[in-house]
Structures are given as structure tokens and as C-alpha cells.
């Protein structure tokens, strides 16, 4: 009936869980786009990661090994995209969409033997008495290792893009691949690495769904999360902490609308279901209306093919 039924600390903790798959996938895509490549196949790489991670975890009994398997699966599919777009110079938008189609199909084939199985449990990290702290303990010290990994990855990507030499080269490739090439950087190699990283992250995001958040394997279980990840990269103006903010905001609105319903707040449900998307658009508009900021983020070579010999 009233909002007091909602435990806000618990809500924050569960929005972190809800947001982590898209956070991981969006971080990967951020690096890919910073290298000047637009890979719309995030959904396909996520779902392949979801089944690879699930299958490996079930076979080995270890979720950790499962996550490695997921990263490998996602990266492998991403390499198909890399070969097509970087070597064979195919259109990135179309190739990305084809990647999604292929990923959805192949994951369903691989997953046929894994329906109705429970994966090994990914344990929460043990922080001892810290976990029992009110509010802070619930929000900060009561998660599985992938949540902390994803947060560490945000910081790592931020540092890499901003301060490291590798990040500088990556950005240079994304801004102006001809100039980067003229300076002697191997544009195609760098982009291959970025695309593979993006695939691995998407795979991890998918596996977080199938191993922790849901946890089970079912066909099509990503249900559009990959597309949201793509939206969040632009929403973030191509900044790592913006991705974090975007993913948590989206996860937050999703979880909040379910909580409002559960609390019996009389808001029309169907509008609540639309709200995560509408609010994302609204924030997108507000951020992009500030032209100076929006213009900073987008890599200038985004989506354009690069061919070295001319």
C-alpha cells in the first residue's frame, strides 16, 4: 500500500544484480566503439556466453570456470564479426545484426541438453561481520564476486582509456584510423583485440544471467538485454562511469517498477513497464541537449570500414 514496505537498501542491492549483465556487456561495447567499431551483435554474443558459461559450469561443477568459458564463447563469436568487418570489410550494422541472429540460433542448438538443469551455485563473498552492517552491509558487502569484478572492470576500463598508452592508441584508432595507420599503428590488429574484448565482456554478461541472476538456461533468455547494453553506451557518452550510471539507472527503474507493483502503488502497470525505456530516452535527450558534452564522446570513425592500402 505504502512506500514504507519497500526496503530501499535491499532494493539497491537487487538493482545491482539486475544491472550487472548489461553493465558487463555495455563496458565491452564501449571499448569496441572507442576503437571505432559498431558491433550490434551484443545480444548474440550475450546469449552465446549464457549457454557456454552454463554448459561449462555444469560440466565442471565450477561457476568460475563457467565464466571463463562464457568469455571464450563470446570472444569467439566476436572474432567472426572481426574477420567479416575488418578483413572482409563488410558493413558493420548488417554484420552485427546477422551475428545476433546466428548467436540466438547456435546457442539454442548448443543448449538443447541443458534445459531444466540447475547450475552450480555462485557463492556470495564472505565479508564476515561487514555483511551484517545495516544498509552499507546490504548494499556493499553482500554480493557474489562477479558484481565486484564488474565494478573493478569499470575502473579498469576508465583508467585504460584515459591514462594508459594502449588506451591512447585505441582512441586514436577510433577517432581517425587513417592517421593512426599513418603513425604506424596496426589498426586492424587493435580493432580485433577490442572486438574480442567486447565479445568476452558480453559473454560474461550473458553468463551472469544464466548462472547467477536467473539461474537456469532457456532459449532466448537474454530477452533484449544486449540491445539495452548498446543503448547504454551512447547514453553514457562513451565514458566508463557513464556506463555504470546508465546500467544501474536502467536496472534501478526496472526493479523499482516491480517493487512499486508489489507494494500495491496504484500506478497503471503497463505504463510502469514502459518506464525504463521512456526514462532512458528522457535522460538521453537531456544529456544530448548539452551539445558540448555529447560531441565529446562519440568516436569519429565509428562504424566506418578501414582499408589499409589506400
Amino acid at each position: 500500500m505504502d512506500l514504507s514496505a519497500i526496503n530501499w537498501a535491499v532494493l539497491v542491492a537487487s538493482l545491482m544484480v539486475a544491472a550487472t549483465p548489461i553493465l558487463l556487456a555495455a563496458l565491452g561495447e564501449l571499448v569496441v566503439e572507442k576503437a571505432g567499431v559498431l558491433n550490434l551483435g551484443v545480444e548474440g554474443m550475450m546469449i552465446l556466453g549464457a549457454i557456454c558459461g552454463f554448459a561449462v559450469a555444469v560440466e565442471t561443477g565450477s561457476p568460475l570456470v563457467g565464466f571463463f568459458g562464457a568469455a571464450a564463447g563470446g570472444a569467439l563469436l566476436a572474432l567472426v564479426f572481426a574477420v567479416l568487418t575488418q578483413v572482409l570489410l563488410s558493413n558493420q550494422v548488417a554484420t552485427g545484426l546477422a551475428l545476433t541472429l546466428f548467436g540466438l540460433g547456435i546457442s539454442a542448438l548448443l543448449g538443447q541438453g541443458y534445459v531444466g538443469i540447475k547450475p552450480p551455485k555462485t557463492e556470495k563473498l564472505d565479508f564476515g561481520p561487514l555483511s551484517d552492517l545495516p544498509v552499507v552491509g546490504t548494499i556493499l558487502f553482500n554480493h557474489d564476486y562477479m558484481i565486484y569484478f564488474s565494478l573493478a572492470l569499470v575502473a579498469a576500463v576508465w583508467w585504460f582509456l584515459r591514462y594508459s598508452r594502449g588506451g591512447l592508441i585505441l582512441r586514436a584508432v577510433g577517432e581517425n584510423h587513417e592517421a593512426a595507420h599513418a603513425l604506424g599503428y596496426k589498426v586492424v590488429v587493435i580493432r580485433f583485440a577490442a572486438i574480442a574484448f567486447g565479445g568476452a565482456c558480453a559473454g560474461l554478461g550473458g553468463a551472469y544471467l544464466s548462472l547467477v541472476r536467473v539461474p537456469q538456461w532457456t532459449e532466448g533468455m537474454t530477452a533484449g538485454a544486449g540491445w539495452i547494453a548498446l543503448a547504454i553506451v551512447v547514453f553514457a557518452s562513451w565514458r566508463a562511469f557513464g556506463v555504470l550510471l546508465g546500467a544501474y539507472l536502467f536496472g534501478g527503474v526496472t526493479v523499482l517498477q516491480l517493487n512499486l507493483q508489489a507494494a500495491g502503488v496504484a500506478v497503471p502497470v503497463e505504463y510502469l513497464s514502459m518506464s525504463p525505456y521512456l526514462i532512458t530516452i528522457l535522460v538521453l535527450v537531456i544529456m544530448s541537449a548539452d551539445r558540448s558534452r555529447a560531441a565529446l564522446g562519440a568516436p569519429a570513425s565509428l562504424g566506418r570500414s578501414f582499408h589499409a592500402s589506400n
Binding site: S14, A18, A223, Q261, A262
Partner: peptide, 15 residues
């Protein structure tokens, strides 16, 4: 939609 169903269950349990 497994993810949404999980979130819905979690929201109900938390309340």
C-alpha cells in the same frame, strides 16, 4: 522472460 520473473520474485520477497 526469466530475468524479469526473477526480479519480480525478488521484489515480492523483499517486501
Amino acid at each position: 522472460d526469466p530475468a524479469k520473473e526473477a526480479d519480480a520474485a525478488t521484489a515480492l520477497i523483499e517486501q
